[in-house]
Amino acid sequence: MRPIIDLQSINRVYRTGAVDIHAVRDVSLTIHPGEFVAVMGASGSGKSTMMNTLGCLDQPTSGLFLLDGIDVSKLSPEQRAEIRNQKIGFVFQGFNLLARTTARENIELPMLYAHPPLSRREQEERVQHVLELTGLTQRADHVPSQLSGGQQQRVAIARALVMKPALLLADEPTGNLDTRTSIEIMGAFQDLNEKGITIAMVTHELDIAQYCKRNIIMRDGRIISDRPVENRSWAATEMKKLESEQLAADLAS
């Protein structure tokens, strides 16, 4: 099976003034369809650079990067924009939804830049589909300030899915959320993954990474650990645990 992500000896060096910063050193990595990968590491470990590289926002200084079979390591900014549009769905830490813009319009955003353009009907069908996938059908015409954090993040996930990307890329998707909402969002990711969507996320929380299938740990720009997850957490189970804990706490008080 052809890998979605195929990194071969990727290096990323930032030249800022006198000192070169080697953010990613000689990283090779393959991610296959259907995987659910968490990239972990402390700040400065190179995981953000990895994320930007995987998302085609940034280009490696050297090395080969095949995304869904396409060599994206030497593309122009315009071509990378097109790849991001077609192949990658982004979910950001701070939701990054357009304020004062309805959920529906936020979800439509990537389709504005689709080339060739999608028909009006096709757009409506896709919006409807991702709204159902993320359980937001009732909230389509609300603006972000009328939605809870979890709902906002689900709008972001819907937006990421609307172009039917090869890879869903999430940057600290639970970073701003409370425990309950974090579990809810991880549940949403697990559901999507069960439906065959490939997901890569960056997180620094170990318990969040436990929801994934595979954990990669980075330090100083290198991968120091890459292993499948044992004792994987499941959102449904965790939610029950949380509720019984809360019940116990309520009873105790």
């Binding site: 315009e78 924009a81 991001r84 549009n85 077609q86 982004f90 950001f92 990054n96 830049y113």
Partner: peptide, 15 residues
């Protein structure tokens, strides 16, 4: 930030 979001989801410089 809005410009960043638009670019991330596929807006080209020209757009």
């Amino acid at each position: 930030r809005e410009i960043g979001i638009r670019m991330a989801v596929g807006a080209k410089a020209r757009d």
